[in-house]
Design a protein around this nucleic acid. Structure first.
Length: 827
RNA sequence: GCGGGCGUGGCGGAACUGGCAGACGCGCUGGACUUAGGAUCCAGUGGGAGCAAUCCCUUGGAGGUUCAAAUCCUCUCGCCCGCACCA
């Protein structure tokens, strides 16, 4: 067989074809083996793969291939998060059906993924936009509905003007739409929600179980859930029998310091309080002004706090004191109860507000050794201290006060302990066509009726009639909307909103375990075998969004006894972003490099190797064309090494001695095995694993250079080459396969067992030990590796130079660490 | 403001529980082979002084602990990320 130069394009095509023909990466339930579920977040089928994709797939594939060689039963699936707005936009632009557009993109992207040589089990492919799949998304919605976790409610919601749909709280970033960055406004609409807040406590507490998740992701979720402990306190309104204002506070111990109350402009009591009074016009005008402000302006810290007196007074339940009730722009209806008790002496915001409007400031917590006064203090005091001006509670510490005051209120029916979360329920309705229809009907007689399971899926109409600049929502399809009630048989109308695509991605990892099951979302035996996902890999941008939703779904399914795990992802890797020239790759900056270009000019192996070598996976990566060149050079070096050695090994006769050169080569090999294994398995540091393979390649070159070819030990050399190729296989699978066959092997390199290292062969007879005097390196000595401390010290003193330097000095202390150094402290 | 992360050669990055700082790669310099090379191979490459052996300095900065600090502690500067009027 004539061997030419390294030709990645030809080699990669050849092996990809073979892997496909031999169905090399198919995974099956096998209780006799330890399973390992490797998963990369599935992509939205935009039509083109970018470097971020290539990075996440490369990382996942190294693990999948490595673990297969470690004899795990590996499942490594891929699929498509295929519903979503871009398909509608593309449909408008290209006058094509969203389903068709999506299907074409999937075909193309799948091809691109295959060209990267990623070892997916395509038998498990899922597509969230296919009726086989969204049938079960709908089924899960109904499960939530049955369990009281799905409800429809009229409330203030986020409306994205560009996307023409509502958004969940998690999907609004700094007042802007997470996807299109346009302004989000507030609208009052009736929408479907999932009660994720019922799971707030568990979603928070169980973060502690996730030992293999990055701290920062857990922290982001913790902040997002935003748990606060405190009390809810009811204030009666003077002259308004039966009306009371409920307020949440984390500091009930400061209740005696309340000098006013503030309501959110949206608070339902605002209108009744001022109705028919001379304050009505001014207050209601203010309310409507504030409500017109954008979310950004509303919640910015820079926005000045504005308050307006309602003319009414609230009665402090602890002391009967009457305090003015105001409406304030800084109070948010969405948090707590939408009403704040103003304690200016002990809350900075309240303090600023009180100074601005000349409201009284009353100190009720006094720290030791300090004497704050409401008239003179320049900032609120929110630290520890003893209660003062608080009647019978005087003298209690703040923490005792929190408990005692709340207990007192509880006894008098005016308050209780309360935990409040920042987390809101998940708004899942979307006023868009390209999504899974919400399986609900509305009957004039029977009201809201869930679509019965047998009628699922509620299919999207496929005859999309484009109109103007958007795809019409389902409300425009007469045939879709009109249906009959399953209870009374009378006429009914379908819900025309579709579900948030995050619903579809909240359970896809379960569907992979049995993608063709037609009688349930997933097969019980399969899901119990494969779940949880052992290693999940994806971008940090989903730290809260997808990862929180998926955890929620998993817990609901666990409670419904459908799965046995209540956390979906045991280990999470949040990979860094790909930059070039110090900026995120983007069309506008003109610094985009695509996987296609790299594969075409260097091959997938080079691209993968570069991505893995340039930086550890969780850190950001700086794309560098010369670095890619370097990796290409390295692979060519590997290629040449194998080709040349192959010839030499077949012609020369060699010898069987194990001399110093052979020991060194073996040591190098076994060191590399040890390091690569450890770096993949324990640390995910693929960059250092690759660098040690490079060192091994250098060592083989050195061995050949130092020895005439006829003097090689053929056995040692070919063993080294074979293991070197195996070590390289997870990173650069195609060249590994090709060189493996060049070495005369007929079975796939990916079916080989991962080599172990022999500690014996790592041993060296002589080690170089550093000799320091007062911590500075002053000499090096070669000693036997098992040399004792005493011998080591003796050897150090025997060293000529050290002896000279110690001449006339007093030795204070000597530290010897065998195998490392000797440090002589001398004066 | 709160929380988290990170600062190491010209660059990307190594350095495991404190033990030779700068592995590996890029870039650069010199050489070999060559009609030529942007192919390949070999050697060198943190800064400074010296003909040299060698010495001094060096992990953002300043202190400290230690025989020994990139690593531990205190302060400080800079950058990045998340949350942010959350009551």
């Amino acid at each position: 067989m004539p061997v030419t130069n390294y030709d990645p394009i030809q080699i990669e095509e050849k092996w990809q074809k073979l892997w496909k023909e031999q169905d090399s990466f198919r995974s099956k339930v096998d209780p006799s083996k330890t399973k390992y579920y490797v998963l990369e977040m599935f992509p939205y089928p935009s039509g083109k793969l970018h470097m971020g994709h290539m990075r996440v797939y490369s990382i996942g594939d190294v693990l999948a291939r490595f673990l297969r060689m470690r004899d795990y039963n590996v499942m490594h699936p891929m699929g498509w998060d295929a519903f979503g707005l871009p398909a509608e936009n593309a449909a408008i632009e290209n006058n094509v059906n969203p389903a068709q557009w999506t299907a074409e993109n999937i075909e193309h992207m799948k091809e691109q993924q295959n060209r990267l040589g990623v070892s997916y089990d395509w038998h498990r492919e899922v597509n969230t936009s296919s009726p086989d799949y969204y049938k079960w998304s709908q089924w899960l919605f109904l499960l939530m509905y049955k369990r009281g976790l799905a409800y429809k409610e009229k409330s203030n919601v986020n409306w994205c003007l560009t996307c023409q749909t509502v958004l969940a709280n998690e999907q609004v970033e700094k007042g802007l739409c997470w996807r299109c960055s346009s302004v989000v406004e507030t609208r009052e609409l009736e929408q479907w929600f999932l009660k994720i807040t019922d799971y707030a406590e568990r979603l928070l507490n169980d973060l502690d179980q996730l030992e293999e998740w990055p701290e920062r992701v857990k922290l982001m979720q913790k902040n997002w859930i935003g748990r606060s402990e405190g009390a809810e306190i009811a204030f009666k309104v003077k002259g308004f029998a039966g009306k009371e204002i409920r307020t949440f506070t984390t500091r009930p111990d400061t209740l005696f310091g309340v000098t006013y109350m503030v309501l959110a402009p949206e608070h339902p009591l605002v209108k009744p309080l001022v109705e028919g009074t001379d304050r009505e016009e001014e207050v209601m005008h203010f309310v409507s002004d504030v409500r017109q402000e954008s979310e950004i302006d509303r919640t910015s810290e820079e926005t000045p706090k504005i308050g307006l007196f309602t003319g009414r007074y609230a009665v402090n339940p602890i002391n009967g004191e009457e305090v003015p009730i105001l409406v304030g722009n800084y109070v948010l209806m969405a948090y707590g109860t939408g009403a704040v008790m103003g304690v200016p002496a002990h809350d900075q915001r309240d303090f600023e507000f009180a100074r601005k409007y000349d409201l009284p400031v009353r100190v009720v917590i006094q720290p030791e050794g300090e004497e704050f006064s409401g008239e003179t203090m320049e900032a609120a005091y929110d630290g520890e201290g003893k209660m003062v001006n608080s009647g019978v509670f005087n003298g209690l510490s703040d923490s005792e006060g929190i408990r005692k005051v709340t207990e007192y209120l509880e006894k008098h029916g005016q308050g209780d302990f309360r935990v409040t979360y920042r987390l809101r329920d998940w708004l899942i309705s979307r006023q868009r066509y390209w999504g899974a229809p919400i399986p609900i009907k509305y009957c004039e007689k029977c009201g809201t009726v869930p679509v019965p399971e047998e009628e699922l899926p509620v299919e999207l109409p496929m005859d999309v009639a484009l109109s103007g600049n958007r795809v019409p929502s389902l409300a425009h399809y007469e045939n879709f909307v009109h249906t009959s009630c399953n209870l009374c048989g009378g006429p009914a109308q379908r819900e025309t909103d579709t579900m948030d695509t995050f619903i579809c991605s909240s359970w896809y990892f379960l569907r992979y375990t049995s993608p063709n099951t037609t009688t349930a979302p997933f097969d019980k035996e399969s899901v119990d075998y494969w779940m949880p996902v052992d290693q999940y890999i994806g971008g940090i941008e989903h730290a809260v969004l997808h990862l929180l939703y998926a955890r929620f779904f998993t817990k609901v399914l666990y409670d419904a006894d459908l799965i046995q795990c209540d956390e979906p992802f045991s280990r999470l890797l949040a990979q860094g972003m790909v930059y070039k020239d110090g900026a995120k790759m983007s069309k506008s900056k003109g610094n985009v490099v695509t996987p296609d270009e790299i594969v075409a000019s260097y091959g997938a192996d080079t691209g993968r190797l570069f991505i893995l070598f340039a930086s550890p996976p969780e850190k950001d990566l700086d794309w560098n064309d010369q670095g890619v060149e370097g990796c290409y050079r390295f692979l060519r070096r590997v290629w040449r090494l194998v080709v040349e050695c192959r010839e030499e090994l077949s012609t020369g006769s060699g010898h069987t001695d194990i001399g110093e050169a052979e020991s060194e080569l073996q040591r190098s090999l076994h060191n590399t095995i040890k390091k690569v294994t450890h770096d993949i398995e324990e640390r995910f540091n693929f960059n250092t694993a690759i660098s040690s393979i490079m060192e091994l390649v250098n060592a083989v070159y050195a061995y050949r250079q130092a020895n005439d070819q006829r003097q090689y030990n053929h056995q040692v050399l070919s063993d080294t080459l074979e293991k070197m190729v195996i070590l390289l296989a997870p990173f650069a699978p195609h060249i590994a396969e090709e060189t493996w066959s060049l070495l005369g092997q007929s079975e796939s390199v990916h079916r080989q067992h991962w080599p172990g290292y022999d500690p014996e062969l790592l041993q060296v007879d002589q080690v170089e030990v550093v000799v320091q005097i007062n911590g500075k390196v002053r000499g090096r000595i070669n000693v036997p590796s098992e040399c004792s401390r005493e011998q080591l010290i003796e050897a150090a003193h025997n060293n000529e130079r050290i002896g000279d330097l110690l001449e006339g000095k007093e030795i204070v202390k000597t530290i010897a660490v065998p195998g490392r150094l000797v440090n002589i402290v001398a004066r």
